[in-house]
């Protein structure tokens, strides 16, 4: 009986600690999420918001969006943006992580310094690269000309629809590389040096060491970095909004800017809600795998 009581008390105490945060998340996140979901089946716009006269319209918002060419463009551009960013930031991130895993005086401090790129406000990063990518007076065109990579007219990075996405991708990689490096280098520092030493005795080359030892031993770490990378990149908003606002000619429109435009430029709240739901479903496709991967550690 006393044992039962003690166990019961333990649970109650635990609930006291956990309850405030859970209540907060229920009110500020779960409820809005459900509200957003319901909203996506109605026709709420700025016109009928005050009178509260919106009606249930079923799936018609979804079918409108799925038939909208601008949505298709935004969807494929988001995928392309995500894929390009992940390939670049992961491969450079893992190379840098391996490099800074070496024993030399500047390893720690330089690796730390690179992280500032990731911690800066994204709005400032966007602004800064917007300035650097200017056609006239932008330092990137000037540097390209200096090293002889740009012969003719200066490149219109942010005004040419076929170049704008590249400018945003490059900027996003600048933010993402140090983050990938940080997460991967933690995994690497956990690999015992004995393994490398015995490999060195067996005559292993640097490349063999990387692909035969580092990569297989880092498998879980690599998988979770890739999935986290997908999740963070796929929902990009601030950077695109600051650099191009989705332009020129929708060339850099992604799902989150599309959803934002529906809700807060066109004030078509239900359409914004429906496109946000689609964005969320895409994220959860990968999110489920990520959750399964880390489940063992996080949720006991």
């Amino acid at each position: 009986m006393a044992k039962f009581f003690k166990r019961y008390r333990d649970r109650i105490t635990g609930m006291f600690f956990v309850l405030p945060a859970v209540a907060y998340m229920l009110v500020m996140m779960v409820y809005p999420l459900l509200y957003n979901f319901l909203l996506s089946f109605r026709d709420l716009t700025v016109m009928n918001f005050k009178g509260n006269t919106s009606v249930f319209v079923g799936l018609s918002n979804y079918s409108t969006i799925l038939q909208d060419p601008a949505f298709h463009q935004a969807f494929w551009q988001t995928l392309w943006f995500t894929a390009a960013c992940i390939v670049v930031q992961f491969s450079l991130g893992i190379i840098l992580a391996a490099f800074f895993n070496g024993k030399f005086a500047l390893a720690g401090s330089v690796r730390g310094l690179l992280l500032v790129a990731w911690m800066m406000p994204v709005s400032v990063t966007g602004l800064l690269f917007k300035y650097m990518f200017l056609t006239e007076g932008g330092v990137i065109n000037d540097l390209l000309k200096m090293v002889g990579l740009m012969g003719g007219a200066p490149l219109g990075w942010l005004i040419n629809p076929s170049l704008a996405m590249w400018a945003v991708i490059i900027t996003n990689c600048w933010i993402g590389i140090p983050f990938n490096m940080l997460l991967l280098s933690t995994g690497m520092s956990n690999i015992s040096h004995d393994i490398y030493e015995s490999a060195a005795i067996d005559g292993c080359t640097v490349l063999q060491r990387f692909f035969r030892i580092t990569v297989p031993l880092l498998k879980t770490s690599i998988l979770s970095v890739l999935m986290l990378g997908f999740i963070y990149t796929f929902k990009v908003f601030d950077l695109v909004f600051m650099m191009t606002k989705g332009g020129p000619l929708n060339a850099t429109e992604v799902l989150s800017t599309y959803s934002y435009r529906q809700s807060f430029t066109l004030f078509n709240f239900s359409m914004g809600a429906a496109s946000a739901v689609i964005l969320f479903l895409c994220l959860m496709l990968v999110g489920v795998f990520y959750l399964r991967l880390i489940r063992k550690d996080e949720v006991m």
Partner: peptide, 8 residues
């Protein structure tokens, strides 16, 4: 994504 909570 932030945009999921933004409208509601």
């Amino acid at each position: 994504p932030g945009s999921l909570l933004l409208t509601p």
